[in-house]
Design a protein around this nucleic acid. Structure first.
Lengths: 195, 195
DNA sequence: GCAGTTACGGCAGCTACATTGACGTATCTT
DNA sequence: AAGATACGTCAATGTAGCTGCCGTAACTGC
């Protein structure tokens, strides 16, 4: 069975008989710089793909044994981080349709990971919260990813972490940045649940 | 139509009448540090989700008008970066099954974005390459993402970029790291195609 | 108090992307 | 000649997203 683990992903590309053609090397330094910047961008594509793939993957085992999918995990995550979030705010974060969310949410509510409560100010709203079981599951899932992330942070150092955050923030949409910034500033008092 | 753009994602959470309870503040500094580290990890979850969401999204418009999906883009990307890659190496990178890859690959070959050629050393292999049209399409897709990335890099500065790379590398699997490192070292001579 | 809008839920049907398992064929290796 | 490998393919299935449409309850404005 191929792809077990630790496989050699790519057959080593030989540098080729031409080697580095010194003749054309100093031809256009400007074009070379441009090429390097482009290479850098493509490398970032790789980074995003692999990091996201393996990071999300880390929680899959637990999800699978419960018959849940990544969509359920995402919902749990954002409800956990935003207790009392409304359905439409959650939709805005996930950027999926109402129907897609409804499917995962119904499962989470049926299994009592999530509760709904009518809003006090606006009773049309359904404020979402994690039950203790929901918090427990979210933690289990989180712990898998946490390990990976903690190792990466340790290796890279705190300066690198700050750079990581800056770049990631820059990649995302304006609306996501607002969300990120908002949640950064209220780091201390996230324990206040809304009924 | 909700979710147009620039919407207020989350209703601002009021700090609550309790405010910051100074009584319990200096109770356990150790637990607080632990909490901050955890907060940091959860924030990284957010970052990965939003950055990946919006980054991949950037190419979707072009893909959609051609009736292609993200899976096609991923295949184009990795074939473009690894000219002459074998099917099984590509499978190892994408971590999908042969059948899943076959479907997207067949489309790409039928539309003449990708060519297959039997390996010279091992004729069982089908070495994959982009046609000029394939390169053109990949570039079109890439350009959408490039813009976003370039802006993020500019804002963040080169120090941050290095940190970004270090953390992202740390998050991914060992095998992906090997791939990343290999492609870093051969930055110059990526023009050598294999038949 | 009525009209319009908003927040939410649900139905029907669709597409994209992935899965497993089994089997076939050409080719390389021993 | 036997076995392993690289690849292709068929059939069935599941998850996760989508659109369009309708309904209900509750809020808002005139």
């Amino acid at each position: 069975m191929p792809g077990a683990k630790g496989e050699a992903l790519i057959t080593a590309t030989p540098p080729g008989p031409g080697g580095r053609s010194t003749s054309a090397m100093d031809a256009k330094a400007g074009a070379n710089l441009l090429f390097l910047r482009e290479e850098e961008m493509r490398r970032a594509q790789d980074l995003l793909f692999f990091a996201y793939r393996d990071f999300t993957n880390a929680a899959d085992e637990v999800l699978h044994e419960l018959g849940l999918g990544r969509a359920h995990h995402r919902a749990l995550h954002f409800i956990g981080r935003n207790p009392g979030i409304t359905v439409s705010d959650l939709l805005g974060l996930l950027r999926i349709t109402k129907q897609s969310l409804a499917r995962v949410l119904n499962v989470l509510i049926a299994r009592e990971y999530v509760t709904q409560a009518p809003g006090r100010a606006d009773r049309r709203q359904r404020l979402l919260n994690l039950t203790p079981e929901g918090q427990g599951l979210e933690r289990r899932l989180f712990d898998r990813q946490r390990e990976r992330l903690a190792a990466a942070y340790r290796e890279a150092g705190s300066g690198a972490v700050e750079g990581f955050r800056r770049v990631m923030r820059g990649i995302m949409d304006e609306s996501a940045r607002l969300y990120i910034d908002r949640s950064e500033s209220s780091a201390g008092e996230r324990r206040t649940q809304r009924a």
